[in-house]
Design a protein around this nucleic acid. Structure first.
Lengths: 198, 198
DNA sequence: CGCGCTTTTGATTTTTGTCAACTAGGGTGG
DNA sequence: CCACCCTAGTTGACAAAAATCAAAAGCGCG
């Protein structure tokens, strides 16, 4: 257990040595990279109950991770993980990594949708899935990240995201507040999103 | 060593049990998923010298893998990998996975570029990087995949890709043949692409 | 040598980015 | 406690880019 972080504080920075993995107890964390033009590109959002295994626990962090709100977390340091591994306790860990990789792929596929609306709808579905996985309400999507961050994550400009949200809200598919999006018509939203067949 | 596959033959299909990992000796392999609308979405291209570790060697394949041309490959089955692991020989394997994850992230970031030209330029850079890593000429990019596959991989429509290629060719940045793209002005192409700062 | 497929090119529509103005909300200090 | 300010977000108008629809051109293969 690490002492809680406040919004804007870093869990780690890109380029530093990986110390271990972080299990998020509460709050949300974003990960991002910086491109050559200096733009921040948001690569992921992690919610309470999930594990950040950046770099897959070897070498150097490729992304930076920062708290979006007050975050409490547990750090499993690399040596402890290795010990667990040799005792065969790493099964859960491997499963978690596979799960994470699966989420990443869904997002990667979602990014290829050519319409901003589809990408946003896909994001809502995927977020819902992750919530279900953790035993939470899939219709309520806490949204502590800024619109700018979310837009970056979804490969669109802030204004486009804003318009998409407004449009879907006026159509009654979602209810949007600054810090929370509620899915009202999951079926219709799912139809918009071009999600993976499993 | 598995007997060579011809273009269109599958290495494995999504939903089947993971048997192990594949090291490609020659030829190119594409991986893809199918969305609920039945569209094929190309998630990766693998070149000779690289390793396909779909599912990270546990559980079920999330993607299908198919040969784009005649392909020869080695299969490392899961048990063999485990044996290696217990002997501490898995370091190279882990490094390979980290490498692969890094490529995936670069691609994920590249997919967020809002212009088709940037995404294509980014693809060329990344392909070049992978070639360098394998000791090959980074300027010559064998392209056995169809334009449709490449467009899917880059999150654009076939016609857009075709136009981008024509435009860059007429500007003298690349030379494009059906099955090979040659980078002529690497610096200018790199400037177009918004790649990661490392 | 033609046939079918993939790719390229053209014309048009739709979407998104861009620039700019306006609004809302949170925090600060009077 | 309220007014103000500053930032984040929304909305509008326009320009740019990509999707779409359609047709022509290459290219491999029988």
């Amino acid at each position: 257990m690490v002492s809680p972080l406040h919004a804007g504080e870093y869990l780690y920075r890109a380029g530093t040595q990986v110390q271990g993995q972080y299990h998020i107890r509460s709050g949300m964390v974003k990960t991002f990279v910086i491109t050559t033009t200096g733009e921040e590109c948001v690569t992921g959002f992690y919610i309470a109950g999930e594990m950040l295994n950046s770099g897959r626990c070897s070498g150097v962090h490729r992304e930076s991770a920062v708290a979006l709100e007050t975050v409490s977390l547990c750090r499993l340091d690399a040596q402890a993980i290795e010990r667990l591994g040799s005792q065969g306790l790493s099964v859960a860990m491997l499963e978690n990594q596979a799960q994470q990789a699966s989420y990443e792929m869904m997002h990667q596929v979602n990014l290829r949708q050519t319409s901003a609306e589809k990408r946003f709808a896909g994001y809502c579905m995927q977020y819902g899935l992750r919530r279900v996985q953790l035993g939470l309400d899939e219709a309520v999507l806490p949204t502590p990240m800024s619109r700018t961050d979310l837009a970056s994550y979804l490969g669109m400009k802030l204004e486009s995201l804003s318009r998409v949200i407004s449009r879907l809200q006026s159509r009654g598919l979602i209810a949007a507040r600054r810090d929370q999006i509620t899915v009202l018509q999951a079926a219709e939203l799912a139809e918009l999103a071009n999600h993976l067949r499993y």
